[in-house]
Amino acid sequence: MEGLSEILIYSSFLLLIIALVLAFFRLAKGPSVHDRIASLDLIASIVMGFILLYSVLIKNALYIDIVLVMSLISFVGTVAISTYLKQKP
């Protein structure tokens, strides 16, 4: 039972890494700037996922606060960049 769950947790790290690579692919390629912002938003979510998984791994609930703040900051950042894009012709 323990072994299976450990395998599952480690493999979810792997999944997140693949997701990060794919998001970076879109970040590099993205035809428009808006695609890049969307992928940055996704990258922020992936990082949040990493933090949550890591807090399970080291058995410390302290890192959840970081997720709380990070979700807010990534949201405001997204809004700020899209506002900026609207201003520029």
């Binding site: 807010l72 405001v76 809004v79 700020a80």
Partner: peptide, 9 residues
Amino acid sequence: LSVVFTSLS
């Protein structure tokens, strides 16, 4: 951040 967000919107 709250001031920034309000003034952005």
